[in-house]
Simulated assay, not measured.
Amino acid sequence: MTRPKEDTNTVRALQGLENNSSSVRLRAALAVGTTPAPEFLGKLIERCAIEPEFSVREMLTWALTRHEASMTVPLLLDEVRSERAQARSQALHTLSKIGDRKAWPAITPALLSDPDDDVARSAWRAAVVLVPEDQEQELAVALATQLGRGERETQLSLSRALIALGEVMLPALGAATTDLDPRVRAHAVATERLWRDPDAGFEFAIEEAKRIVALGGAGQEGQ
């Protein structure tokens, strides 16, 4: 019988996930993902909500993806409704990695416009992975309402999400180029430039877009 040894290894791994050393937590998450078992899921989910180190969070997500989606997805959907922003963000990130479209109904307009930028970015990435084909245009419209939001990192994340939807996002993007808010117009123009020239680079695209908007030429970008 090997059960006692397995129990010892499980306890050691679970304790490792709570260790004060980030390197120990990283190794523990790696061990859990290498030998996945249902008894690890609760602690993995719990740790995702509070883990301060990015590299450890990524390993926790990887470990969760190594478990059966039928077990992990329901737990992650509960976390998506958490009051803790990191819990929502990390759950959405993990759902995007699992790619189970049964999770799509959880991607609500409230999440896509979440006041926390990290949560919103995770929701955008998850949305473009999980969205059914017949709802891509509706998603593009919802994402376009967030144009002009935040700083460069947030704006680039949104541009990438829109571009990932493909041509279906162009009508929503085109409408945004005539928005009354110059930040929205500039972001829309920059996103369209990146769509047409992926090698342009976001910094160049956004600065060029600002110049176009300042000159009143945003409306010509889609022509």
Score class of each variant (00 low, 15 high):
residue 109 P to E: 05
residue 39 E to V: 12
residue 20 N to V: 11
residue 216 G to K: 12
residue 11 V to W: 11
residue 93 H to Q: 12
residue 135 Q to S: 15
residue 169 M to G: 09
residue 11 V to Q: 12
residue 138 E to V: 09
residue 29 A to T: 02
residue 31 A to S: 11
residue 151 E to K: 11
residue 137 Q to M: 08
residue 202 F to T: 04
residue 159 S to N: 04
residue 51 E to M: 01
residue 35 T to R: 13
residue 141 V to E: 10
residue 46 E to V: 03
residue 198 P to Y: 03
residue 139 L to E: 05
residue 93 H to D: 03
residue 159 S to L: 03
residue 48 C to Y: 00
residue 84 R to T: 14
residue 142 A to Y: 03
residue 137 Q to E: 12
residue 47 R to N: 02
residue 183 R to P: 01
residue 116 D to P: 05
residue 214 A to Q: 15
residue 11 V to K: 13
residue 46 E to M: 15
residue 190 A to D: 05
residue 58 E to H: 15
residue 108 T to D: 01
residue 40 F to Y: 12
residue 50 I to P: 06
residue 107 I to V: 14
residue 182 P to L: 07
residue 163 I to H: 00
residue 157 S to E: 08
residue 102 K to E: 12
residue 58 E to K: 10
residue 182 P to C: 05
residue 71 M to P: 11
residue 85 A to V: 10
residue 34 T to N: 15
residue 133 E to H: 13
residue 7 D to W: 10
residue 184 V to I: 05
residue 58 E to C: 06
residue 44 L to F: 07
residue 75 L to R: 08
residue 179 D to T: 06
residue 74 P to Q: 11
residue 132 P to F: 09
residue 80 V to H: 09
residue 184 V to Q: 00
residue 2 T to D: 12
residue 158 L to M: 01
residue 68 E to M: 14
residue 57 R to W: 01
residue 74 P to V: 07
residue 168 V to Y: 07
residue 218 A to P: 05
residue 124 W to Q: 04
residue 175 A to G: 13
residue 116 D to A: 14
residue 111 L to M: 08
residue 121 R to Q: 14
residue 160 R to T: 03
residue 60 L to N: 04
residue 198 P to N: 03
residue 218 A to C: 12
residue 104 W to A: 02
residue 192 E to H: 14
residue 14 L to N: 06
residue 183 R to W: 06
residue 168 V to N: 10
residue 110 A to I: 08
